[in-house]
């Protein structure tokens, strides 16, 4: 690489093979070593991230099936996409999932985390029990179990029938199949919970004591002390979980047997994209879908950052 030419500052003698006792000058630069250490990352970034990003942007304006040479068709892929009913359905399924799963999961995570900080004796054990599902939930095995739990005559069916709701298993019911995937997401609340726990433990005790002296009740202390103090952590979790929720794939693929059914009720955006790319080999169209996803996720992220100024409270100098 051409790293040595990039160093700034006058008269770099350090470009030689071994530098002689370099002074501890404040402006010292480790350019050579720096780029060498970063070289795997730089190659990966160029070849596997930035390059493919640009390539998929280009492909999104072409007709390409992996075997022909990409054929420039302008905005045609995008036009087709927005006119496609199935596309609208995937958008609606995905948005409903994101809007349901993210708040429910984070709500559960925060509620349980607050409970756990109040009774610290058994905290370790509960934390383990609640965290474990978030490591297993994304696996095929868990999706298989979920599918069986919510199958006809499965545990859910027997429970709902016993209270007089004979709606059958949710797997085959378009009205409930998405809800079942939401529950699978909520089941994995452990990861954000651990992050909340770490945040809650950093809230200074004195603040609660001061609030109590001022006559603040439990709810008041929660709203005026806890929430602002952990708002950076809430923001981090919200951002991470939202971005993740947009990309759910494995559970929907396995539970629906790969087709997003029943009646397209679990046809997630990513699943649709996968089908266009690897069942139909419409690589250009799939690339266009990928870029729309990127733009939407980017906008959502930007929006969250923008609003965060109003509600995220950074305690100064506590780092």
């Amino acid at each position: 690489m051409t790293q040595t030419t990039l160093t700034k500052g006058p008269a770099r003698r350090g470009a030689g093979p071994r530098r002689a006792v370099a002074g501890p000058a404040p402006g010292r630069s480790d350019a050579r070593a720096g780029y060498l250490f970063l070289s795997p990352w730089i190659i990966g970034m160029a070849v596997l991230t930035l390059g493919p990003m640009l390539a998929s942007l280009y492909l999104s304006f072409t007709n390409y099936n992996l075997f022909n040479t990409p054929d420039w068709i302008g905005l045609e892929n995008y036009r087709k996409m927005f006119a496609d009913d199935q596309f609208h359905q995937t958008v609606s399924v995905t948005l409903r999932y994101v809007l349901l799963a993210t708040p429910l999961k984070l709500g559960a995570a925060l509620a349980v985390a607050i409970w756990l900080t109040q009774s610290r004796r058994a905290m370790g054990l509960y934390r383990t029990a609640f965290y474990a599902p978030s490591l297993l939930g994304a696996s095929v095995a868990m999706a298989i179990v979920w599918r069986a739990l919510f199958a006809d005559d499965g545990v859910q069916d027997q429970l709902t029938s016993s209270v007089g709701l004979g709606i059958g298993g949710w797997v085959g019911n378009p009205d409930y199949s998405l809800l079942m995937l939401v529950l699978l997401a909520v089941w994995q609340f452990g990861a954000p919970m651990v992050i909340f726990l770490a945040g809650l433990q950093q809230v200074p005790r004195e603040l609660y004591e001061a609030a109590e002296v001022d006559g603040a009740g439990r709810w008041r202390r929660f709203v005026s002390v806890t929430l602002p103090m952990i708002s950076p952590v809430i923001f981090f979790n919200l951002l991470l979980e939202t971005v993740h929720a947009f990309q759910v794939f494995t559970s929907a693929y396995v539970i629906s047997g790969g087709d997003g059914g029943p009646a397209g009720s679990t046809l997630f955006y990513t699943l649709h994209l996968y089908q266009r790319a690897f069942s139909d080999y419409r690589m250009g169209y799939a690339s266009a879908m990928a870029w729309v996803l990127l733009i939407v996720v980017g906008l959502v992220t930007a929006l969250l950052f923008r609003t965060s100024r109003a509600w995220v409270h950074y305690a100064g100098g506590s780092r």
Binding site: Q247, A277, S287, W291, V297, T301
Partner: peptide, 14 residues
Amino acid sequence: MLPGHVLLVPQYIV
């Protein structure tokens, strides 16, 4: 924060 699907098709082609 980048959705991996953006890289999917070109990476597959490469």
